[in-house]
Each structure stands twice: as structure tokens, then as C-alpha cells.
Amino acid sequence: MKVAYVDPFVRAARDVFKLMMDLETHRGELWACDELIPSKEASVVIGVTGDLLGSILYSFPKEMTLKMVEIMSGMALEELDSFVASALGEVANIISGNAMTHLNTNNYNCNIVPPQIIIGQNVSLSMATPRALVVPLKTRIGDFDIFLTLTER
């Protein structure tokens, strides 16, 4: 897993958060972990196919997730229900789609598969994955993690 694959996702997350929620994101220190396990309560897994193979896991704290969807919808929200989960999945989907565009301009032709939303922490995804790189991103409404396991085909 090359560190160079991380940048397109960080850029895409920064742009999408700014555009959709008027939020700045600040990158924390990169770390590696052995498994793809949701670190926070609301997560989205997106598979990557093409020149790069693997998965991306976005993991958000509950309060941050509710706040994100509140900013977009203008409504007060209390639960991680299907509406919130679906909106979160789409935000992750849009970030991943934009990251694919950045990767394509670097001559990696990749596609994403539809998002899978996971509610709950430390849920095993039963996926045999190589080591993941984790990039923490900080915002004024909370901090979230992007786990990446991408290998060249």
C-alpha cells in the first residue's frame, strides 16, 4: 500500500466537505493497522476495482454523523436511521468517486462499487485484507478516519 494513494482521498474529502457542508478538514498523522475494523460508530465501506484493488473504509463518530446530515438537511436529527445512513453512504461515495477521478489523472484507472453502510463499532468485516493505512481527518464538528487497503493489480 503506497502512501501516494492516500492523497487523492484526502483531497477529495477536503473538497466534498467544503462544498457540501462548508467544513474545513485537517489531516492528522498517518498510521498503519492490520485489519479493516470500524474505529467509530458509523462507517461506510467502498470497494475499488481496476488498476488498484482493495477497499476504503470511512469511519465517523455518531455525533459527527448526525451533525453532518443536520448541516445538509437543515433538520435536527437524533438517530442513526436509514436516512442518516443513506446520506452518509452517499457522502463517502461522492468522496470516493472524486478520488477515482484524481487517480485516473495519475493513470490509475479505477472504479468503485456501491457503498455498504455499517452501524456499530469494532464490527469485523470478515475481509481478508492486507495492512491498511489510516488517515485521520479533523473537522470542527468531529474527527473521522479513512482506512485504505489498495494494491496494484
Partner: peptide
């Protein structure tokens, strides 16, 4: 069903924001 309508609502909202904002 509530679940399906909510799922649709989430997609509709994010799509609309992203489409109009970008």
C-alpha cells in the same frame, strides 16, 4: 416502508446538493 423511503431521501438530498453546488 419507512426504511426504503428514508434511504431514498438520503440519496436524493446528497445528490441534489452535490449537483447544484458543483
Amino acid at each position: 416502508t419507512q426504511e426504503l423511503v428514508q434511504e431514498f431521501g438520503g440519496k436524493l438530498m446528497t445528490w441534489l446538493i452535490m449537483h447544484v453546488a458543483a
